[in-house]
Design a protein around this nucleic acid. Structure first.
Lengths: 140, 140
DNA sequence: ATCCGTGCAAAAATTTTGCAGCTGG
DNA sequence: CCAGCTGCAAAATTTTTGCACGGAT
């Protein structure tokens, strides 16, 4: 039950927060802007202000429930934090986002940081890609 | 002469564009927001509007003279494109930005993209770090 | 003279904040 | 009942655009 997630985060279990969490969990789109969430909530039935969405998403971020990304294009997008870490590949033609993990890259990152006397707090890796021409590859 | 860079980009050689390019080249800070550039230009003597900075930086970006980054924190920062590709390490305490390259990571990225049927157009890797505790490391 | 570029101010777009009222525990 | 939340609208921030003027070719 997601109420528990909210409690753990020290947040009261309110309708808006549940609705928003629900949207984030139940929707196909894994990366959504505040606007996206807002529109989906309007379609549903809930009458939740955009300001609340921003507030709640920020709280979720601080609570580690959600991750805020800054891809390209001005506005931020949010993604449920499922514990599994991964990076992103954005198809610049279709806008599609593919997630992937590379332990090797992770390891290299730590090595590099250490070499400079740092430790890694977090990182963000986004590859901007487009479908290969000369090859069947994944269908589109 | 940077006039040539401008001509190559199909841009007229104007005072504001030269000044802005000069700032980008001659300043220690390699990553600057439009505001940063604006303030520096005021200190210099030039009376250039913020709007122009945005316009010029966008043109520079399209011309490949400059790269636009979206780190964290809402606003974009710009960096001179020196041909040499590199990624970034941001010290979250001091705000300092360290640049680095890792051919291995690059190679892995291509491998991964290919595995998914894509080719890489570009990428953005930012590591958020902080100084190691147990070790002298880089001075602060 | 023409075309491109610039400054200024207004407009957009995105996110944050103040405040009065409502709600959950 | 009380603290914390919410909605609304206004504010703040960052970036873009409209327009008339100015400069270079």
């Amino acid at each position: 039950m997601e109420s528990q997630d909210l409690r753990n985060a020290g947040l009261k279990v309110t309708l808006p927060r549940l609705k928003i969490l629900e949207i984030l969990e139940g929707n196909a789109m894994r990366h959504m802007s505040a606007e996206d969430v807002y529109k989906l909530l309007l379609n549903e039935d809930a009458d939740i202000g955009l300001a609340t969405i921003y507030r709640v998403l920020t709280q979720f971020e601080q609570a580690g429930l959600v991750k805020r990304h800054h891809f390209e294009g001005g506005h931020a997008v949010f993604e449920l934090e499922r514990g599994d870490h991964h990076d992103h590949m954005v198809d610049v033609d279709s806008g599609k986002v593919v997630e992937f993990v590379s332990p090797e890259i992770e390891r290299l990152q730590h090595e590099i940081a250490e070499k400079h006397g740092y430790e890694i707090i977090g990182h963000s890796l986004v590859m901007y890609v487009k479908a290969q021409e000369g090859r069947g590859g994944k269908t589109r």
